[in-house]
Design a protein around this nucleic acid. Sequence first.
DNA 1: CCTGGCACTCCTCCACCATGAGTGCCAGCA
DNA 2: TGCTGGCACTCATGGTGGAGGAGTGCCAGG
Lengths: 338, 338
Amino acid sequence: MLSERRLEVLRAIVQDYVGTEEPVGSKALTQRHNLQVSPATVRNDMAALEDDGFIAQPHTSAGRVPTDKGYRLFVDKLAGVKPLSHPERRAIQNFLDGAVDLDDVVGRTVRLLAQLTRQVAVVQYPSLTRSTVRHVELLLLAPARLMLVLITDTGRVEQRMVDCPAPVSETTVADLRARLNSRIAGQRFAEVPPLVQDLPESFDLEDRGTISALLATLLETLVEETEERLMIGGTANLTRFGHDFPLTIRPVLEALEEQVVLLKLLGESTESGMTVRIGHENAHEGLSSTSVVSVGYGSGEEAVAKLGVVGPTRMDYPGTMGAVRAVARYVGQILAES
Amino acid sequence: MLSERRLEVLRAIVQDYVGTEEPVGSKALTQRHNLQVSPATVRNDMAALEDDGFIAQPHTSAGRVPTDKGYRLFVDKLAGVKPLSHPERRAIQNFLDGAVDLDDVVGRTVRLLAQLTRQVAVVQYPSLTRSTVRHVELLLLAPARLMLVLITDTGRVEQRMVDCPAPVSETTVADLRARLNSRIAGQRFAEVPPLVQDLPESFDLEDRGTISALLATLLETLVEETEERLMIGGTANLTRFGHDFPLTIRPVLEALEEQVVLLKLLGESTESGMTVRIGHENAHEGLSSTSVVSVGYGSGEEAVAKLGVVGPTRMDYPGTMGAVRAVARYVGQILAES
DNA sequence: CCTGGCACTCCTCCACCATGAGTGCCAGCA
DNA sequence: TGCTGGCACTCATGGTGGAGGAGTGCCAGG
């Protein structure tokens, strides 16, 4: 196993490399971090770390650079999550509090994340699948035409037109609205179908067709409109990526343009808790020199969507993780309040 | 004034430079385009063109490169709009026909434009300034907490939270809902403010604070709703920009992230007809080495929004203009049908 | 197991030069 | 007046060849 000091050396290498962007040598290490050993000793440790695949040399007689495996160990064992300062937290809260609707919340979150981490931010809109129904509104637009508005606890609003087989009265609609809400308000999407199944039976025969049509649309919306949307921002930060520009940045931009790729990227992360995918751990080839830090967020206990950042593998993991976690937390609060 | 042949030389320079990305010299010119004169003559013409500011040399003893002024002349006088081929038109139509809703139309348009022009595409959502209010819904979520839902005739739904200064009763809310709808349903956004101005006065003193707060939120929503949204895509094409990468691409990415900048960019163009803004003609500094080709589109005669592309000043203007115009035309058709 | 010493590797920087594309100018010619 | 060929000149580009130096691996001694 790796001795305590070797881990310390690895940590030092990661920290220095993240800071300087240059391969780090044994001498510089002993000076900058006051390791109580000589450069020669550090060199031995480095050789061992290299044998184990945690670091690598770009070429002979150059310093060492962490490998993906090295970053992995760093993230798992050596680094914590750096909490944000109080002023930072305050700023986050103030910024997010100004949001007026869901689009605005997501937009602000993206900008915030990009600014805090100086990386590319990705925020998924709250998913409908795990949401609960806050309210269902029915509007009689024409004698045989209803509008169904579904409001979720995350603030998302879906709306559908329903063509009724027969004209329906305003009182029927009011009745239906009341019953519908009393049954499904506060319920999760998945739990709705059995709760409304017998609803047509309690109405007059002439209205049943309408109610069936309405319910069909409602259920369809719940199931089908689970389509995930997302927003990205901070792509200008890609320019800080490295020296070998075009080749690195191109595939990343391409990957970021494909929602499917991004959704998979966020989706793959574990149900709760923060996920860090480093370099080649990302399935998508274009992102093999980037790391993705993502976490779920939600209004209650459960995560309703994910957010995260995409940056170079050489990133400040503790700081990034701290920012991502903090933002997710505050967004959750905002959603819970609204 | 410039002789016929000099204009021909300028055209040749622009075409060659766009193709090769390299300064073009007199000898190569006479060969590639079969000008019936010697290189020496072309050199004289070039010197004249340079004196007039249409072309420039990166350094002594290099070929010539068009200036912004040169491109301007090229676009205005020398180049037409290259119509798309029939297969291309067919492909556009097929692709756009598959769209299911407005978001999808805009999304597909962006991808299409980016792909056709191999540049960054920007598409503005159809403007809502002419929308009318279909219905306003009020929900009492808590004793002092209202949800305002605004439904427009275009099918858009906006929703806002309103914190009331004092608790309000369900009956007050119902009353308010009825009065509000009878006044503003069917009205255009711009006509709403005067119609609701005196509404608080007809309620009990204790509720006036709430009603004022509600109206403030409503008016705010109407203004925001008319605010233009847009979608961009094809940023990966920025990597084909040039050799001096980071410095060129950075400010462009930054500019593209600011909706305000983009809206101004599109908005500045003339009401109808295609607009080409070349290099420094763009107000925004970060875009001083890019050109913007934009055009209005709409379902009827009138343009409801703009779309366009952003690319290097060294772009294929005829082809780009052709693609932009064609896409705008087809999007207009799609909108008219739906 | 740590340390200092030492030879070795190899990247980076810079100076230098040859090459060649491209120019400006000029004198001659239609 | 306008076009042409010729010619000297400029200057970016690319390749070569050390000098310098950072960093390594290894070894012998504490």
